[in-house]
Design a protein around this nucleic acid. Structure first.
Length: 203
DNA sequence: AAATAGAGCAACCGCTTGGTT
DNA sequence: AAACCAAGCGGTTGCTCTATT
């Protein structure tokens, strides 16, 4: 969450969120009590930013121990990676990024972290949310998940690569993946949608 | 103006992976 | 080689906002 919506969330949190009942006006920090869950407050953000700036990323459980934040290491890592990192891009995906995401998904499937590595300033969570939303939209519109041109492009690239190198990289070989995945997106197995999808696979 | 539905997003949970002892 | 632990990843949930009725 960023800027505007975050401000809303924070102000809401400070007014009537159940989490506030823990006695954490401005964030339940510094306690040895139970770890806090739910939306982060700006006070908690500030503590996390300060800690990571000083000590660097990694060793997330130490963050909880030494900064006084009542958050588990996992939660700290996620908050930092998705919202506080200074190199994050804010705002909607550009058309170029959208196209890139589709291309990457054709090649990699639901490997959000790997996709994020190819899109500087974007997070795996952001890409995952974008993709899931996009799939729903296209399903509603009766459109294929992958635009035909991108499917074909990826398929061609793959065939080329397979000729160059018979090794599988450990991922699903992507021609197989294309045949399978265009029709069987994990979230929508068994849904009528598939009938309407474009098939890039020779029968 | 109020109620409802749907979309979007942040955060959590559980599993996997990789490193250390 | 096995056990343990921390970090990372992907799926899912739940909350808020917005559009529609």
């Amino acid at each position: 969450m960023t800027s505007e919506s975050e401000e809303k969330m924070i102000s809401k949190n400070s007014v009537d969120s159940p989490y506030v009942e823990e006695g954490n006006s401005g964030g339940n920090v510094g306690g040895n009590g139970p770890l806090k869950k739910g939306p982060w407050t700006s006070a908690e953000d500030a503590i996390l930013i300060e800690y990571v700036t000083k000590h660097g990323e990694g060793n997330w459980n130490a963050v909880q121990k030494h900064s006084g934040l009542a958050r588990c290491g996992k939660s700290c890592r996620l908050r930092w990676a998705n919202h506080l990192r200074p190199d994050l891009k804010k705002g909607a995906f550009t058309p170029e990024e959208e196209r890139r995401i589709i291309e990457l998904h054709v090649k990699m499937g639901n490997k959000w972290a790997r996709m994020a590595a190819e899109l500087p300033g974007r997070t795996d969570n952001e890409i995952k949310n974008y993709w899931n939303t996009r799939i729903k939209r296209r399903q509603r519109a009766g459109l294929p998940i992958y635009p035909p041109d991108i499917s074909m492009q990826a398929l061609n690239e793959n065939q080329h690569n397979e000729n160059m190198d018979n090794f599988s990289t450990g991922d699903i070989r992507h021609s197989d993946f294309l045949c399978m995945n265009v029709f069987e997106t994990p979230q929508f197995n068994g849904i009528e949608l598939n009938r309407q999808l474009y098939s890039p696979c020779p029968s």
